[in-house]
Design a protein around this nucleic acid. Structure first.
Lengths: 347, 347
DNA sequence: CAATTTGGCTAAAACGTTTTCGATTACAAT
DNA sequence: ATTGTAATCGAAAACGTTTTAGCCAAATTG
């Protein structure tokens, strides 16, 4: 009932263990004849090499670490991360790698990220959704273990970036193209780097269209929280000079914003326009369907896995350039066309 | 820069490797004096035992497999599973266990679940959201590897059940207590075991309240799909003898149901009542706030980890009884009180 | 025909632990 | 002085692989 070992296999074939090992690992000094014999015997006995023993000898575990600390304590239910992880896992598995979560509180004794990685002999680690400047992270990325980072770049290692700047810029471009000139942006928390990037994209669009900063309203909201957005939307709608379009921190905010509009009896898509961020499936079933920007989580995860594995398997090759994955604009029904073009206020 | 090994530690202490190992592992034939010396030296050198070598020797990996196949291809974004996994992971990590995903398509060669588990030397595996009757699963649960199952019971192994029967029963009880007598249940897909359980709970409630089956309407909907629920809700509302309350397959369905009610200008909570299942946070921000039943995913995951680890660490103890985790009723605003008690039709 | 190469295989040492079984000492009891 | 008993420690074998170095016959070369 125990694991069938390479010794059993060698006995069954009448060959030495070294020959069997080399036959299975594609060494060139084994005849095709015996190689076939070994392979078919392995299949028959249901032999799989013991990953542990192999790792001990080769110090390659075919195991990738995944490190993320969720700011919102939502853990794996964090929608962006969950989708990301799923794609990463798919790609890694297809290339023969398992994944294990790296955390700092394994068992009783606290363990640094680096220690955990070494403890488990991971071949590489993917960093996402973390505070990249923290000492524990620095220790890890400065070690010899290959890393890939998402939405952040260390010049030693490959990285993949979601184009938050471009995504927000295109969304704003779109809103402006629909005639909006007085726009509010309720962005997410200021301490997050993605927030800063989206703000950058927002202003970049305004600039290219010559819309003066005085025309826009910037407010700080919070992610994954409809209630704050409800409050802020109410405030914005009751201004003496209200915006014609409100860009929300994410799709969750639309729930609150919608509520505010309905209460004030303001028709969405005509009297007020909204846009979200993330393209969550649920908000695509609401009416009116939310206009939003979708991050290509699948491509991000897949690309991260590819680059990390390449970095693991060919350590000599020079560090690759950061790749940025474009976002996709989802044209819903919440950004209406401004016909009686509101007078643009210029200084 | 390499891993600091037990040999380095033994050299630093001037002791043999065996003594060091025994000191760290709490053997009784080591004096407290030398034990302390070893421990402090280990801390100073940053020594962590290599999990791979330890596993090879002890055939205990401190690694738990997690096996789930998502029916909806939503992978880790499956909300119930994501929450479950998160809780399981937390509990496992606090007890010194890492987790790895078990799948059947690792690398090029297809590998059975059992082979994957053996390949990675997992100490045990948690089965959730799977087709428990499939041959690949049977092979695994019939092996020597400890298993814990969620929402299904094999009598060999511990299991933890979410009380879908009781949850649905209490929800129906509540609806009936609000005066509803003509109730529709749009349940999920019929091939799922949780669907059957909820239907059971539904009928159990009807029976205890003496409501004849002719009074209720049963329709098959689908999970995580607002559109189908939109259609079915529309159909139900246009009946000559419409229900006063519609129980939906899950919270996602409420999006569609709400849409249908708004279109027909029917006020939710007064003219028609709705209830969901799952207690997704988003629907708790909608208005009216959805009445729903929340599964205690945190307790389920935690309990599963506990039982699995106990089963791993004390293999002799007899198999524990299945534990069922109760659901929590969330009283929202979507189930109104029926004042002019609709006449109950009796045969 | 001798010398060299080549093809195909094996022996054995590692990888970093744990654990069994002895070995050594000290000290008390006979 | 001999024996017995604890109390500590160490030697060495394992766990299942991979990989280096080498062996032997056959094939090729001069």
């Amino acid at each position: 009932m125990k694991h069938v070992t390479i010794r059993d296999l060698s006995a069954a074939c009448g060959l030495s263990v070294s020959t069997v090992s080399k036959a299975l690992n594609g060494y060139s000094d084994i005849s095709d004849e015996t190689r076939q014999a070994v392979i078919s015997a392995a299949a028959e006995l249901g032999y799989f090499p013991n990953a542990t023993a192999r790792t001990l000898k080769t110090s390659r575990s075919h195991n990738l670490g995944v490190l993320f600390v969720d700011e919102y304590q939502s853990g794996l239910t964090h929608p962006f991360f969950a989708a990301l992880l799923n794609a990463f896992k798919m790609e890694a598995e297809s290339r023969g790698y398992d994944i294990t979560f790296i955390s700092s509180n394994l068992g009783a004794s606290a363990m640094s990220y680096l220690s955990h990685c070494r403890y488990r002999n991971v071949d590489g680690v993917c960093l996402a959704c973390v505070e990249f400047t923290s000492p524990a992270i620095r220790e890890l990325v400065e070690s010899a273990i290959p890393c890939v980072t998402i939405d952040h770049v260390f010049n030693r290692w490959p990285s993949v970036l979601s184009d938050n700047v471009g995504g927000m810029q295109h969304l704003t471009d779109y809103v402006i193209s629909r005639g909006h000139r007085r726009i509010a942006f309720v962005h997410g928390q200021r301490n997050s780097s993605v927030t800063e990037k989206r703000i950058t994209g927002f202003y970049r669009s305004l600039e290219t269209h010559g819309i003066p900063p005085e025309n826009v309203i910037l407010r700080e909201g919070v992610y994954v929280d409809p209630l704050v957005s409800y409050r802020i939307t109410n405030e914005l709608l009751s201004m003496s000079d209200p915006p014609t379009c409100i860009l929300l921190p994410d799709d969750h905010a639309y729930i609150g914003a919608m509520e505010a509009a309905v209460q004030q009896n303001i028709k969405i898509g005509r009297d007020i326009s909204f846009a979200g961020f993330d393209g969550i499936s649920m908000t695509q079933s609401l009416h009116p369907r939310l206009t939003s920007v979708q991050q290509d989580t699948e491509a991000i995860g897949r690309e991260a896995a590819r680059r990390l594995i390449e970095c693991v398997e060919k350590p000599n090759t020079a560090g690759s350039e950061p790749v940025t994955i474009p976002c996709k604009l989802i044209r819903g029904e919440t950004v209406g066309e401004v016909v009686n073009s509101a007078p643009v206020r210029r200084p």
